[in-house]
Every structure is written in C-alpha cells, then in structure tokens.
Amino acid sequence: MQVKDRTFLITGAASGLGSATAERLVAAGASVVLCDLNDSVNAHAERLGKCAKACMADITSAEQMQRAVDEAVAFGGESGLSGVVHCAGVVSVAKLVDRDGNAADLEGYARTIKINLVGTFNVMRLAAAAMTRNTPNESGERGVIINTASVAAFDGQIGQCAYSASKAGVVGMSLPAARELSRHAIRVMAIAPGVFETPMMSEIPDEAAKALAAAVPFPKRLGKPDEFAQLAEQIITNPMLNGEVIRLDGGIRMQ
C-alpha cells in the first residue's frame, strides 16, 4: 500500500499519536480525514492544508463513525478509503478495592471498555466494510487497518484492570480480524506503545512520569509521537505486516 495519493482516516487526531500520524502521512503525500471529539481537530486540519479534513465524531457511536467513514470515502475520490489508523482512546486508573475498602466503580470500568475496545471494533468494522468496495491496487491490496493497543495489554500495573483489559482485547482482535479480512485483501495490525509524550501523560504525576522514563532500557526517555507515526507509515507500506502486534516501547517491561 502506497501512502502518496491515498486517503486515510485517523481517529484521536486532535493531538498526540493521531496528530503526529496525520502530519507524517500528509508529508508523504496522503490525504487524511481527522476524527476526534475535541474541536481543536478543526484547527489541526486547517494547518495541514487542503489534503486534510476534520470530522468530529464519537468512536463508540455507530451513526457518527459511519458518517466519518463516508466522509473519508468521499474525500478519497476514485481510490476511496485506503486505510485507518485508530488512535482514539482513554487512560483509566482505579483499584479494585480502594484504601478504605470500597469496591471500584463498575460504570468507570464499563466506560473504559466501551471506548477502548468497543470503539476499536466499531471503527474497524465500518472502515473494513468501506474498504471491501475498493478496487485492488497494483499489489492486490484493498486496505490496511492499524489499531492502537498498549504495553499494558501484557504488563498491566496495579490499578490498570480496566485499561489493561481493554487493550488486551485490542490485541486479541488483531489476528482473527486479519484472518477474516484476508479474503478482502485488507490487512490488520496493532501497535502497542510504551510510555509516550502525549496529552494522556499529563494525567500522570510528574514523579511517576519521570520514573516511567527512567525504566525504559534504551532510549532512556519517553517515546515521541512521530516515532509511532513512523511505524504506522512503515506498516502501511509493507504488505507482509499483517495479523501482528508490534511493541514500540524501548524495551520497557512494566512491574
């Protein structure tokens, strides 16, 4: 799958990993539809120019995401929608039982699962349905889907039951989705980032963030959003990458 002259839908595109991915793909000659609930996505699309279009939508809404996919297909013209990079999600921290002996809030757990896992499935199913209608390119591909998991799917820490479960679900969907969509010549991959410099990190106390950076074997720092974007671009352009989850974490293993 080539990047140049192709159209990609990017969720969570107002900031962080999604924003960086949009910038990299546009620089490589792609058109992008930026999807987010934050209205700052409109300004980001304007900065990227005529090759970018904003669409505010909730990834858990069937109707809103269908509209976003339809806009991406239309924006792509004859080539339609060539791929989706799904970066939208939330971080949540809650112990099963707090220090006073109170049980965790069930609604909070369900919200994390709905956004991170059900939302991923929603985006994937709608994007895949649109891409099945594409004419195969010169290498026989119709499209590519890249989801965002997390190292927490494998190395969840205390307080991450909801977040780890949601991201483990994303990991678990990768292979069966890739197997199913192979008949349509659509690839499915996932990236499992470690600790990255994104707005989500602002929700973590400074001392905790410094400790996480120090725990990375090499390079001993937080990941940069463009490093995620670089891997996403490489996945798009390498047709043998399919049905796999790639850890992008500098070798960190959470304790």
Rank of each mutant, 00 (worst) to 15 (best):
M65L: 11
H86V: 00
V73L: 11
G80S: 08
V84T: 13
E63P: 03
Q64G: 11
T60K: 13
S82N: 15
I59L: 09
C55K: 07
H86N: 05
V85K: 05
I59E: 04
E78K: 10
M65I: 10
F75D: 06
V69M: 07
A57R: 06
A68K: 04
G80P: 04
S61A: 13
A68M: 09
F75W: 07
G83D: 07
A72D: 05
F75Y: 09
Q66N: 15
E78H: 02
Q64T: 09
F75H: 04
V85Y: 11
S61F: 11
Q66G: 14
S79W: 06
T60M: 09
Q66L: 08
G76I: 02
C87S: 05
E78I: 00
G80W: 12
R67D: 14
S79P: 00
V73Q: 11
H86T: 01
E63W: 03
S82V: 02
L81Q: 02
V69G: 01
G80D: 10
G80T: 07
F75C: 07
D70K: 13
M65T: 04
V69K: 01
M56C: 15
E63H: 14
G76W: 01
L81I: 05
A68P: 02
S79H: 12
Q66K: 13
S61Y: 10
C87K: 00
A68I: 04
D70M: 05
S61T: 09
V73I: 09
V84L: 13
D70S: 14
E71W: 03
V73K: 05
A74M: 11
V69D: 00
M65W: 10
E71G: 13
G80N: 05
M56P: 02
L81F: 03
D58M: 09
I59V: 15
G83C: 08
C87G: 01
C87D: 01
G76A: 03
A68W: 02
V73A: 14
A62I: 15
V84G: 01
V73G: 04
G77N: 02
D70A: 15
E78S: 06
G76K: 00
M56S: 14
L81G: 01
D58K: 04
I59W: 03
E78F: 00
G80Q: 06
H86L: 01
E78W: 00
T60L: 06
E71V: 15
A72I: 15
D58Y: 10
G80F: 00
A74Q: 14
G77E: 05
S61W: 12
H86K: 02
C87A: 07
A62W: 14
E71C: 12
E71T: 12
V69A: 03
M65C: 06
V85Q: 07
G83V: 03
Q64P: 06
V85E: 02
C87W: 00
V84Q: 01
V84H: 06
A74P: 04
A68D: 06
Q66I: 05
E78N: 04
A57I: 12
I59T: 13
A74D: 12
S82Q: 08
F75G: 08
A74H: 11
A74C: 10
G76E: 01
E63C: 09
G76C: 10
G80L: 05
G76Y: 12
A62V: 14
D58E: 12
T60A: 14
H86F: 02
A72F: 04
C55P: 05
Q64W: 06
G76P: 08
D58H: 09
S82M: 06
M65N: 04
A57H: 12
M65D: 00
